[in-house]
Simulated scan of single mutants.
Amino acid sequence: MTEDQNTKCHAIIHTAAVAAGAGNLVPVPGTGVAADMVAMTAMTVSLASVFGGNIGEEAARGMAIAAIKGTMLKQPIKTLAKELSKLVPLLGQLIAPAISITLIEAAGWSIAQELAQKQKRYLPAQN
């Protein structure tokens, strides 16, 4: 990954994480998952463009789901805590967004690395 790509990825991933965190402010269990998916799908499409790709929404959603699954399987306690925390007034509105931000950040960098590897495989002359 070039320095320029890294800078663009930082901006895209951080923006998506903040958007997902904002969506997780709603104190209803389950709404955070929808906010996370929307943020992840948009983030994946944007990340693909950084690496010269152009993927559709369905492909982006598939990559987002795979990345979220991988992140959730690695951090099941955080995922469970995020949704259960919404049952606790006020405290849940602080915990759920914070956990969502960390999950989206981790999944975003996972996707960025995957896309960088694919670019390196298919376009070795540009790297």
Rank of each mutant, 00 (worst) to 15 (best):
I95W: 01
G53M: 15
P29Q: 05
G53W: 04
I68A: 15
L94F: 08
S49K: 15
G53Y: 13
G108T: 02
I95M: 06
A20W: 03
I55F: 02
Q119C: 11
E57G: 02
A42Q: 08
T44C: 14
T15I: 07
G52V: 14
I95G: 02
I104R: 04
A125E: 14
A112H: 03
C9P: 01
D36E: 14
L87S: 15
I55Q: 05
L123C: 11
G70W: 01
A34G: 04
C9S: 15
Y122S: 13
N6A: 12
V38I: 12
L90Y: 04
T44S: 15
L103I: 09
M43E: 10
V50E: 06
I68F: 11
A17E: 01
A35N: 06
H14K: 09
G70Q: 04
A39S: 15
A19T: 10
K120Q: 09
A59P: 00
T41R: 12
T7K: 08
V50Q: 09
T7H: 05
T15Y: 05
P124I: 07
I101R: 08
M43F: 03
F51T: 06
A39T: 12
E58T: 15
I95Q: 02
H14E: 04
V33D: 03
I99P: 10
A22V: 15
P76N: 07
V88R: 07
A125S: 11
I99G: 09
G62P: 03
G70L: 05
R121H: 08
G62M: 07
Q93F: 03
A125P: 01
A35T: 08
V45K: 15
S85A: 15
A16R: 03
V88G: 12
S49G: 12
M37E: 12
A11M: 13
W109H: 15
V18S: 08
T71Q: 14
T31P: 00
L25F: 10
A116G: 12
A81G: 08
K74G: 14
A19Q: 10
I104D: 04
L90W: 06
L103G: 06
A16I: 03
M43W: 02
L103D: 02
E57T: 10
A112L: 09
A66P: 04
L115F: 03
T71K: 11
E57A: 09
L73D: 04
I12Q: 00
F51G: 07
K82P: 01
V28A: 15
A107D: 01
A60N: 05
L90S: 08
N6T: 09
M63G: 13
M43L: 13
E83K: 01
K120A: 10
A125D: 13
E58D: 14
E57V: 11
H14R: 09
G56E: 07
A60W: 00
A20Y: 06
P27S: 07
I104Q: 06
L91P: 05
L103M: 14
P76M: 05
S100P: 09
K74Y: 00
P97F: 01
D36G: 13
P76E: 03
V26D: 00
I99E: 02
G52E: 12
F51M: 11
K120H: 04
M43C: 14
L94A: 15
R121W: 01
V26F: 01
P29C: 10
G70K: 07
V45Y: 00
V18Y: 02
G52T: 14
T31Y: 00
I101T: 12
K8P: 11
